[in-house]
Amino acid sequence: MRIPPYYRQASWQRFFAGMAIGGVISWCIFLYIFGEWQEEYSMKIEKQEEDIRDLKNEKKIWQEDYNEINKKNKELLMVQEINVKITNSEKYKLDSYTVFEIEESIKEDISVLLAKDIDTAYKSRELIRKAIENKTVKAHEKRYELEVREIVFYTKVSIQLHIKLAD
């Protein structure tokens, strides 16, 4: 079998030369377009990576702020102080030192509320009320009972008491 002698005819030579030149030109055009696309995509990927880094840093900052705010809120939602006030001490002519001692003894009795969350303290309000009202206080050789008038729960627990003579 023999290959036909097309290489001798000028029209076939021009045709094959045109195909070769066309192939080279189309390959150059392909490389140019592909290079432009690759450059565009690599720039886009680089920009996206930078955006991702920025967003991760921003997310980290937001999370730190969020955790810090949560810690502050958690502290705010805990009982930090107990205030006890006897409102009718003048009726029994008690001096301020005696009133102070009574208030401090009540604070000592309910000091377990300190550093507890407000919800737990609020749920134990009846127990606190009974603990205070069942306590008999001795001052100036007289025995006094305490009556809880008001309890306010927040970061400070405020308790208002009335004092009366024990039977």
Rank of each mutant, 00 (worst) to 15 (best):
M19K: 08
E104S: 14
N57D: 07
Y97V: 12
E104Q: 15
W62E: 11
W12P: 02
I33Q: 09
D119I: 13
Y7P: 00
I82A: 08
S26E: 03
L94F: 05
L94V: 02
D51M: 14
D167S: 12
K44L: 10
S11F: 06
K107H: 07
W37D: 04
F30A: 14
K130R: 11
G23V: 03
Q160D: 12
E150C: 00
F100E: 10
E75V: 02
Y6T: 09
D117M: 04
G22W: 07
F15N: 06
F153N: 02
E40N: 10
G23S: 13
L127A: 06
A17R: 12
E103I: 08
V137I: 15
S111W: 03
K130S: 13
F100W: 10
K142E: 09
F100T: 04
E75W: 13
S89K: 13
L146K: 02
Q38Y: 11
L31K: 15
A17H: 07
E108Y: 08
K116A: 01
F30Q: 06
H162E: 10
E39Q: 11
L31I: 04
S96K: 13
R129Q: 11
W27F: 15
R14H: 07
H140P: 00
E49I: 09
Q48A: 13
L76N: 15
Y66I: 03
S26V: 08
K72L: 14
S124G: 05
E40V: 04
A121E: 05
D65V: 06
Q63N: 11
T155R: 14
K123D: 11
Q48D: 07
Y97F: 11
E49F: 05
D54H: 10
S26H: 02
K74W: 12
K60Q: 09
V137A: 05
Q9W: 05
W62Y: 09
E145F: 03
E64N: 11
I52F: 11
Q63E: 12
V148N: 03
I29H: 02
G18V: 00
G22I: 04
F15Q: 06
I25R: 01
K59R: 13
I25C: 08
E103H: 01
A166T: 08
Y32G: 07
V84P: 01
K164H: 14
E50S: 11
S105L: 15
S89E: 15
K107S: 10
V99M: 01
I33C: 01
C28A: 14
I21N: 10
N73F: 09
A17N: 07
